[in-house]
């Protein structure tokens, strides 16, 4: 058992160093494109780490996490637009271009939206849970499309990337380092949650909710808390994604995005600390490499996903590091 733990730790360290070293090297060689690619990996991984709290630890297959990803993106876009145009948001509150402030707003907004969505969705389970989270996300998607104030269908541009204290976020590498740092922070949060009393209850709810209730812990409360925390983390990733692309549009809210986040987790290994990181690396690299060869690259992604689901349920991390150990 000990050995499996060590092997997973070694795998995780390797992945973390790889994701850091590649953009450093690319930057040194004057290849900023690859820095952007690594940033995309880090941001998608962070979004998926957030979803992994609900899906991996809690077994809650949310097909609506794009809602939180997109809301985070719109938080960045809307606040930046108001700051840029020097128009107060409402009640005289000014916009902001400060990333930490934007992340805070993204977290609060996503938490407040996730609370009622979770409270309703978690009355159901299985396929119904999947469908109801999807329905909520689609409602927000269509709302964004039909609300002209912030670009409607066309989306919203962020002319200047938002700022972070002492960091020149306009340059690719410093911005990557901000995203990477936040990813590491997200992973630390995930690990702390997983190993805590809360995490024990959450994972027990996934394995056997009757057992959890029989010892006196209400599964609903635990799951709702997990859903809200999960949404908040995905929301921060959404804000970074908008900054990465200088753009936020309803596509960030669409069900494709929700599906993509689920795919990242399944590829990498659901419930595993570095599953979303491994999944995001594979996904973005496939998108880049195969996408350069054929427009139909997702066909090959589908094949790989099929292979993982049929032959390697633990995903990439499961293949390399073996089965999850629970102490």
């Amino acid at each position: 058992m000990r050995r499996a733990v060590t092997r997973e730790a070694a795998t995780n360290t390797t992945l973390a160093l790889l994701l850091l070293a590649a953009p450093l090297a690319a930057s040194a060689m004057g290849e900023p494109f690859y820095v952007t690619l690594a940033t995309r990996i880090a941001v998608l991984a962070l979004a998926a780490v957030g979803l992994n709290i609900a899906l991996g630890l809690g077994g809650l297959v949310s097909f609506g996490h794009a809602a939180f990803f997109g809301l985070g993106g719109y938080a960045a876009g809307i606040l930046a637009t108001h700051a840029f145009n020097a128009e107060p948001l409402f009640l005289g509150i000014a916009g902001t271009t400060s990333m930490p402030a934007i992340w805070l707003v993204a977290m609060v907004v996503c938490g407040l939206v996730a609370l009622p969505i979770g409270a309703v969705s978690l009355r159901t389970s299985g396929v119904y849970f999947i469908m109801i989270t999807l329905a909520f996300a689609q409602m927000i998607y269509y709302f964004a499309i039909s609300w002209p104030a912030y670009g409607g269908e066309d989306g919203l541009s962020i002319y200047l990337r938002n700022s972070f204290p002492w960091v020149n976020t306009a340059a690719p590498l410093p911005f990557f380092l901000v995203c990477y740092g936040l990813l590491l922070l997200g992973l630390l949060v995930f690990r702390a949650l997983r190993d805590s009393r809360f995490g024990a209850a959450l994972q027990a709810a996934r394995q056997n909710e009757v057992r959890l209730a029989a010892v006196g812990i209400a599964p609903f409360d635990i799951r709702l808390t997990a859903f809200v925390i999960s949404a908040m983390m995905t929301g921060v990733a959404g804000a970074l994604f908008a900054d990465l692309n200088h753009f936020v549009s309803p596509s960030m809210l669409s069900w494709h995005m929700s599906g993509e986040l689920i795919v990242l987790i399944i590829l990498g290994g659901k419930g595993r600390l570095f599953g979303p990181v491994a999944g995001a690396m594979l996904y973005v690299l496939l998108e880049h490499v195969l996408g350069g060869i054929t427009e139909r690259w997702q066909f090959f992604l589908g094949l790989i996903l099929l292979g993982v689901v049929l032959f390697a349920r633990g995903g990439l991390i499961g293949l390399v590091a073996g089965r999850q150990s629970h102490g």
Binding site: S196, F198, H326
Partner: peptide
């Protein structure tokens, strides 16, 4: 860990997020 879950429940709130149970 199955038994720990019961011990944890008996001690009160499971909304504790930091200390590793093991």
């Amino acid at each position: 860990r199955n038994v720990m879950l019961a011990v944890q429940a008996r001690q009160g709130s499971s909304l504790r997020f930091l200390r590793p149970v093991m």
